[in-house]
Computed example of a mutant assay.
Amino acid sequence: MKLSMKGLLAALLFSTGIGIASSGMAQDIAPININSADPELLDELPGIGPSRAEAIIEEREANGNFKSADDLTRVSGIGPATVDRMRDQVKFEE
């Protein structure tokens, strides 16, 4: 099978692009402050959809700010596995 130089270059560029796109993009994003984020921002976290984002805000308003990722288990539907998936993407400033 004979590859043209143009085809080889296209394949190389394509595979490089895939590598860049899948190389831990979540780590390149600044952590989200759970204690001040709005529902749209919270919805970007892994395992958090619109209803859990609203539940986080309701829990925060009813019982005070979260102090650590583990505090997120106070929210119905958020367990340790969900917390572990987002642990490096959140922060807890007052």
Rank of each mutant, 00 (worst) to 15 (best):
A26T: 04
R74K: 10
T73L: 01
L41T: 15
L41Y: 00
V90G: 04
A55E: 07
A55P: 11
R52C: 00
A37S: 12
A62E: 02
L45V: 09
S51V: 14
V75M: 05
P39I: 13
E59H: 04
G77S: 06
R87V: 04
M86N: 05
G19P: 10
L13V: 11
L8W: 04
K2R: 15
A11Y: 10
D28G: 05
K91R: 11
E94K: 14
A81W: 00
G49M: 02
G17D: 12
G49S: 02
N33V: 14
M25N: 09
M1D: 12
M1R: 12
E94Y: 08
E59N: 09
D38F: 04
G79K: 10
E94I: 03
E40F: 07
E94C: 03
P80C: 00
D88L: 10
E40T: 13
E44H: 07
L9K: 11
E93R: 00
I18S: 14
S76I: 07
S23H: 11
G49T: 06
D43S: 14
E93A: 04
N65K: 08
P39D: 06
M1A: 05
A10G: 09
L8Q: 11
I18K: 09
S23P: 01
I32P: 04
I34N: 00
G24M: 06
S36V: 02
S15I: 14
A21K: 07
A53V: 00
D84S: 11
M5E: 15
A81Q: 13
S36K: 11
N63S: 15
T16R: 08
L9W: 04
D71C: 00
K2P: 03
P50E: 12
T73S: 13
S23I: 06
S51G: 02
N33M: 07
A30M: 04
F92D: 08
S23F: 01
L3W: 03
I78A: 05
L9E: 02
D38M: 03
A55C: 09
L72R: 07
M5S: 08
I29Y: 06
A62R: 15
I29C: 05
K67G: 14
A26P: 07
D88F: 01
R60Y: 01
Q89T: 03
I78N: 01
M25E: 15
A53F: 00
L42D: 15
I57P: 00
N35P: 01
P31V: 00
S15T: 14
L9A: 06
E40S: 13
T73G: 00
P46T: 05
A69W: 10
L12D: 01
E40C: 00
D71I: 09
F92P: 11
N63E: 12
E59F: 03
G17H: 01
E58Y: 08
I18D: 08
V75Q: 06
L9Y: 01
D84I: 06
P46G: 11
A69M: 02
